[in-house]
Write a protein that binds this DNA or RNA. Structure first.
Lengths: 342, 342
DNA sequence: TTGAAAGCGATACCAA
DNA sequence: TTGGTATCGCTTTCAA
């Protein structure tokens, strides 16, 4: 039975050095390919590394060297919403290409969860943080400012970010959708979404939407499904509630595509024709829309690209390259065929 | 300008202690709520913690205490596939409830990417690892065995896991689908999937499927879209290729629901009626299916639950609670209405 | 080209 | 109830 070399029972750098008959420092230099050692030494050290199956302890490296770590904290509201799953995929693919790792935080859209996660993740000395949304609790903001690491706020376009930001202008995207529906000849328009207890991207979209509709002589009737997630089923019963409480609704705009699909299902199940009897518009343009028989009227955003750009901003900043701190990646309207087009 | 207290420019425990006029140890005890200090001391230390905005450095804690970190490495093939996004959501929700963080690794279904990620993530001294799939490279297996930390392999039911495992028997799920289609009276059946260069869950499903179909007197015609992801569009053109190269196909089974939706779109675009002219079956039962007019014949798996159970196994093991090391969470067939039912 | 010693920020252990 | 000292694994710094 081999004697326990240390508490952790893992192979350490000193062990490798001892076996190779060199000092820790020499072994360390070889492993970092720093130069300043003979080829013979290098070969010897690497041989022992292989033999012993040595894996460096990056915790110690970061700790000792006052370098920042290679991991980046990434907060995302939820993954049940495909949109955010794609954003995360874009972020992680780009980060990992450059040797970084994502430490995930699912905030479930609450500032308190975000704050708690920020506190925890900061204690692990991350290289940087990527956060969804522009709103944070006061204590979170204080911690973020003190952390002294790069921060990218994504999703909402944000002209005065904590540090850097990439996203779209949600107000404008809602406005454009509102104007489009007005142009299509609708005036009595419904909105179905989830509760917006805090200011967030969806509520900005709704604000923009209302402004356009009301400015165009229309009326918006809102139906918020309190305390529910923005998925199919709330779209279904939110529509039921909306149509029960209001008559004469000609068209419904939903917080996102998933809710819109749920709503469309309710309408067709009740014998209404889309778009003849009622118009349906979503937001986000889920990939599946492209292969359904009737394309959903929606707003397209390149989620994967958004994630990649956010990660790239982080990487550039970490490499001290110049970075444009604020970026708007835009959106475009998908006319689809679920609203009638005059 | 305040003098730089240390290299990192962050507030350290010694600083808090100095300000409070106590020793590091006392401050440490207060912060860990270990007991063994007066209320007066506690209040004083906590006051300074607040004033200085002290955040502990968990790196140092792990390092000093020879505890493992609260990180759990989680490898997932991709997030573009909703199924895996849901699994990850289940994992992270459960882990974070118990104070753990997920360090993400997207392997894009390649063993090499998984191996590289394992090497990196192990260097962060994670508390444990959750890996998708039962197949790993030889070097990966060696590292995993040496790591001496809990490992949960998910997705494939695996009666002899490296450590623990939770998933379903993919062969059986394919078999059940094959038998069902035979029972529905189909004999000339197509399969559309992506390339299965390595053994994986999808190829197990196909094996089971073929066994059932051929055992039932049917024939399976395979169409693999090489080197593509299992999403809508490959489903679309894979179907085109299949139907062009073979006549008389009565029903098509797809690697997953996304491909099935793509295939169904191709069929209806070509004027075929589903299920009158051709049957369509998917796998995975995407949430959206439940709200489409015509429910897709598919196989249901509780992805979120799978993730939660995997995380719970990890947590139990980390708390030294007894754990059943292997778990089969099962599946059930959704008859749907995209295959004709005799 | 190589090595010895100090130190990163916390905790364990022992002493007071 | 409190504090001093050694220590974790590695890198930085300085000396040889």
């Amino acid at each position: 039975m081999r004697e326990k070399p240390n508490k952790t029972n893992k192979v350490s750098l000193s062990e490798v050095a001892r076996e190779a008959g060199v000092s820790k420092m020499t072994a360390s230099r070889v492993l970092r390919e720093e130069g300043g050692y003979s080829e013979k030494t290098r070969a010897l050290v690497m041989q022992k590394v292989d033999e012993l199956g040595y894996l460096p302890n990056r915790l110690a490296t970061v700790f000792a060297g006052d370098q920042s770590s290679t991991f980046v904290g990434v907060s995302i509201p939820e993954l049940g919403n495909e949109v955010f799953a794609q954003v995360l995929e874009g972020i992680d693919r780009q980060l990992s290409t450059f040797g970084h790792q994502s430490v995930l935080g699912l905030t479930q859209h609450t500032l308190k969860d975000e704050e708690d996660w920020i506190r925890t993740v900061l204690s692990w000395q991350p290289a940087g943080l990527i956060l969804t949304g522009r709103y944070h609790s006061p204590r979170a903001i204080e911690m973020l400012k003190n952390a002294g690491i790069p921060i990218v706020e994504i999703w909402d376009y944000n002209s005065s970010p904590l540090d850097m930001s990439v996203g779209i202008n949600h107000f404008d995207s809602g406005f454009d959708m509102g104007r489009y529906l007005i142009e299509c000849g609708y005036t009595r328009i419904g909105y179905v979404g989830t509760s917006h207890d805090a200011a967030n991207a969806a509520s900005s979209r709704l604000d923009g939407f209302c402004k356009a509709v009301e400015g165009g002589g229309g009326l918006v009737q809102k139906q918020l499904c309190l305390h529910d997630t923005a998925t199919f089923y709330p779209g279904f019963y939110g529509t039921e509630q909306l149509l029960a409480s209001q008559s004469g609704i000609e068209c419904i705009f939903y917080q996102n595509d998933a809710m819109a699909f749920g709503g469309m299902q309710y309408c067709t199940a009740k014998g209404m024709q889309v778009p003849e009897d009622i118009g349906i518009a979503g937001w986000g343009d889920l990939p599946i829309s492209a292969v359904l028989k009737r394309r959903l009227t929606s707003m397209h955003v390149s989620h994967l690209k958004l994630g990649k750009i956010a990660a790239q901003m982080m990487i550039s900043r970490l490499s001290d390259e110049p970075v444009e701190p604020v970026k708007d990646i835009g959106f475009h309207l998908i006319p689809g065929s679920t609203v009638r087009n005059l």
